[in-house]
Design a protein around this nucleic acid. Sequence first.
DNA 1: CCTACCGATCGGTAGG
DNA 2: CCTACCGATCGGTAGG
Lengths: 200, 200
Amino acid sequence: MSPRRSAADARETRQRILDLSLGIASAEGLEGLTIGRLAAELGMSKAGLLGHFGTKEALQLAVVDEAAAVFQREVPGRVRQAPSGLRHLRAVCEAWVSYLERNVLPGGCFFTAATAEFDGRRGPVRDALAGMNALWRRDLRIHIRRAVSFGELPPDTDVDQLIYDLLGVMLALNHFLQLERDPAAPHRARRSLDRLLGGR
Amino acid sequence: MSPRRSAADARETRQRILDLSLGIASAEGLEGLTIGRLAAELGMSKAGLLGHFGTKEALQLAVVDEAAAVFQREVPGRVRQAPSGLRHLRAVCEAWVSYLERNVLPGGCFFTAATAEFDGRRGPVRDALAGMNALWRRDLRIHIRRAVSFGELPPDTDVDQLIYDLLGVMLALNHFLQLERDPAAPHRARRSLDRLLGGR
DNA sequence: CCTACCGATCGGTAGG
DNA sequence: CCTACCGATCGGTAGG
């Protein structure tokens, strides 16, 4: 009918590109994204695809944003109703485990993969990844501080130490799920979380 | 003098290739290794370089072996004199922290980077990485079991859970060192280890 | 170990 | 969004 594509069509195409890119990047890395491959899998031309972003680096940055949106929706977005303090912190961590357990992305946690890939480089992509990690730590910090102020965690809790340990639990979970395909890994993650956040 | 290179020369050249490759791979990934770049940085031809390995995949497998040799030398190799049991386990973990703290490789832990890069793929490289991880877990398991049998760890110690937690500490250490360049990270790792293996 | 080459693919652009 | 193209680089080979 209409020979001219609408802005809504363009947005939809852009979203299709990002969805596919995020899946590929989680499994094979942000550098494994190539314009030619994406275009072929989506049945469009390289130029048409690149027109949505301009450069490969802009595409990578858009994928980082998309990954953050998915994570936001699947982890903190799922526990907004949880009561403030330690219960919220526990709910967020459980949603985090569940997110990895459900294999929302084919390659596991995008941020773990991309961070390991880019932490030795410089540039906007690395900076964007570091920024997302910092935002997430700030979220965790807020919940931990509240739990402390509510008396649900000991007053001498070392907040940064707890963030360190929680991240370690999640990195190990991703490792055992992705490399070993160990179905016991989520159980281990939950046990560690119970130990860190007070069993039960 | 001698127009003909000796077998010893060839071995030395091979070692130079592997040393450079391991450094690059730790920082930029095993796929970031390209024959052309290596040849240029070493002042030799691509064909000359490739002659030592045959294919890029064979080079990648050789780099995995080289990484294992370095790790073996720098971690378990440094604590061979430590007494058996919990003290040995603690010494190994301390050597592990120290290995990352000293930045033996420019990009941090090669296995962390390479595992995150290849865990979503198939093939010999992924298998080799999984095998190295399994060997290392076996080492840890032996030390943990001894510590339990010596009565230095509780008799109901969940060995696989402890291995999971120890790996999490190291993955978090690598993350905070490489992405955040956080100088407090080794201290946090040691605190977590003390908590897992009994303080002091 | 080298030179000289191969086909394929990379990111990106011109022009429509 | 397309076709048609660019120079650069990829892994690898032939032949010495």
